[in-house]
Amino acid sequence: MYAIAMSEIGSGKNLGTPSTEPAALLRLIAEQGDKSALSDLFLLYGAKIKGVMLKSGANEALAEDLVQETMLTVWRKAGLYSTSRGAPSTWIFTIARNLRIDQLRRRSNRPYEDLARVEIASEAPSGSAVVEQSQVIARVSLALKALPAEQQEVVHLSFINDIAHSEIATRLGIPLGTVKSRLRLAYDRLRPLLEDLQ
């Protein structure tokens, strides 16, 4: 695959598979404008973001465009990434989400962008290191898989398939209150892990 070849040439590494931590790649971009780090991040996340966009209702071409936009935003805003914004996966998820809101649903992501500016202005030094953040994410992902199937289902429909709670209720033929209580129960299960992020 050409993509891998590019990465080899760019970074001088012996393998196309990125071996560096995503947070370190973000730092390389922020500090050195390192395009091989961008290639590596693309290889790590591009195909996953595309999967999310397709599940959100994007067609093939739009999903590809949204991956491009997401990775380009990562490139341009890498300097704004800090551990207090969570693990790199979390930060990239929020970028992809904001673009999805803006382009896929034709809604405005402006409230999210302005809130991000408030956060940058008030950012406190973070307690936990990047590595810990990534470990917590790994544990959260295990815990998500251990949730009862009905809770996993609503979490996925909401966060990945981009479906409003009321429409989840309609699709599953359950009351809206049940959708919300399943989400709350899921959060309660994840909460001990998520609080480790603070």
């Binding site: 996340y45 996953k48 207090s84 914004r85 979390t90 994410i137 998500l144 959060y187 603070q198």
Partner: peptide
């Protein structure tokens, strides 16, 4: 921030 980590884990 904690809730966004759910999205981060799902993306991973």
């Amino acid at each position: 921030h904690r809730l966004n980590a759910i999205g981060g884990a799902l993306l991973d």
